[in-house]
Design a protein around this nucleic acid. Structure first.
Lengths: 137, 137
DNA sequence: GCGAAAATCATACCTTCGGGTGATAGGGTT
DNA sequence: AACCCTATCACCCGAAGGTATGATTTTCGC
């Protein structure tokens, strides 16, 4: 968590400096208005995509009744559940690692825990079992 | 689809006009740089959120009756479909081979065909894709 | 603050999977 | 008969996945 906050802070700082620099450049007429607008546009579009992604992948429990209970009963952690969702979407360990900003080894560890808790030994089985238990949509 | 395109065009036109108007206002010093940047930022952030939402939401076919049609369209054979069902149930190649009384090599061949027809490269992806297309329950 | 649980990463080893290629055989079409 | 599709099987190789073990760092409840 601290790492995340640090990253945010760093990104914000870099962004602020960049904006400041751009305004300066702009002030002394080294940049055209078009370029300035373009960079702004691209930057904020990227930010928007990111924010949108954060927002839209929120709680979407279709059937909360079984979902939460079974999840608690099996003691499946938040991270494990994230991995489970990506797993069901058909991602490889590598892809999951990249998306969650962790090492593939970490993904493997989470998967091993999931397999143990779901009492399975393969990813396809895990997906099938999770669907049976209504853990995922 | 045509409606979507029309909406896109309309939105783009409105955006362009707005930008043009803003630049004009800006040129005649009715607006401050800060306000201009802010409007740009908000606008493109919203655009980003929207685009991100469009991109990240998966394809969803709601109709449960497309089963046969899609199957025919993809030219998935009977044996391949049997394999697909077992695959979704989480079986290994070995298990599928035993259950269908064929060699694991045969299963692999069927799987390869399935992957090609579903345009995927892993079993979990195949299951995910098949579910999207309502090929399986 | 302390201890338990969760999250992170690594290394090593083995199994399973996927891609590529090629071969044989039967059923149906033209 | 010639042809195509499906089904069957084999072999090789490299990539991906799973198991085991151990270690460190974060997070969180008490």
């Amino acid at each position: 968590m601290k790492k995340t906050i640090l990253l945010y802070a760093l990104a914000l700082a870099v962004g602020a400096v960049l904006l400041q620099w751009m305004e300066h450049q702009y002030a002394i007429r080294l940049m055209s208005t078009e370029l300035y607008v373009m960079v702004l546009a691209v930057g904020f579009t990227v930010l928007g995509v990111w924010v949108g992604h954060r927002l839209t992948r929120g709680p979407r429990a279709a059937d909360p009744t079984v979902n939460r209970k079974a999840l608690d009963a099996l003691k499946i952690s938040d991270k494990e559940y994230e991995v489970l969702e990506l797993l069901a979407a058909g991602h490889s360990n590598r892809e999951m690692a990249d998306r969650l900003f962790v090492s593939p080894n970490t993904i493997k560890t989470h998967l091993a825990s999931l397999y143990r808790k779901l009492e399975v030994s393969r990813r396809t089985q895990a997906v099938s079992r999770a669907r049976e238990l209504n853990l995922i949509v």
